[in-house]
Design a protein around this nucleic acid. Structure first.
Lengths: 110, 110
DNA sequence: GCAATCGTCAACCAATCGGTTAAATAAACG
DNA sequence: CGTTTATTTAACCGATTGGTTGACGATTGC
């Protein structure tokens, strides 16, 4: 049986899909607009979006003939929590802490 | 080109490999001992360990004829930080922040 | 109604994945 | 020295992955 965690990590293992997620950080987008910056066919992007969707990382909503994609970070959180279980074995990890804060507090940059 | 992040997430997408990492949380282990609880051949486990190693998630050191496997969470940190970049879109994300601190400050537990 | 647009489906392809078994290498034991 | 123990390598297998092209259904605009 394929768990949620399997799907999330597998989805994140592809650079195109991570780039898509990063784009969706900015704003919700239609499938065609997601595909635009990539040198890749539309069906290829469509497949990537399906994979992200099945992993629960994005939600897709069809309005008219346009399908909107929006980020859904809840699945990411689950995976993130799993990973943090290993963090306790790092010596200090102040770097990561600072980067965490930096990202966390830069919410006005959107 | 295959980035570190690609390798880490791909490595984490397999339940057997995640189980191995969890086992290595407890203690360093020889390859044969890693393989023991799995219903799978030794070469299969050996391959999994190679994948974990290439991703930088474990380190392997050969002493005599035994190859010891130990957790190396630094690669995990990189991936974890990447993921936390998306946390800002959760309503508040205090949970994740607190867990981060909780884990981070428990450095005396090592 | 008809043409253009949005997106997916179907079929195909080469490459990779996750497993197998059998053989090879390397170190330790007696 | 020969044997056992620890691990990897090699060759193979079927399934999955990430891409392609071409056809298709659905919605919109003129």
């Amino acid at each position: 049986m394929e768990t949620r965690l399997d799907l999330v990590f597998a989805a994140l293992s592809d650079p195109t899909r991570r780039a898509i997620l990063t784009m969706l950080l900015e704003d919700d987008m239609a499938v065609t607009d997601v595909a635009e910056p990539f040198e890749m066919s539309l069906p290829a992007i469509s497949k990537h979006l399906t994979i992200l969707s099945r992993a629960g990382l994005i939600a897709q909503e069809k309005r008219g003939r346009v399908k909107w994609c929006k980020l859904d970070p809840s699945a990411l959180r689950e995976a993130s929590v799993w990973m943090q279980g290993f963090g306790q074995f790092e010596p200090v990890n102040l770097d990561a802490f600072e980067r965490f804060l930096e990202v966390e507090l830069r919410d006005d940059s959107v």
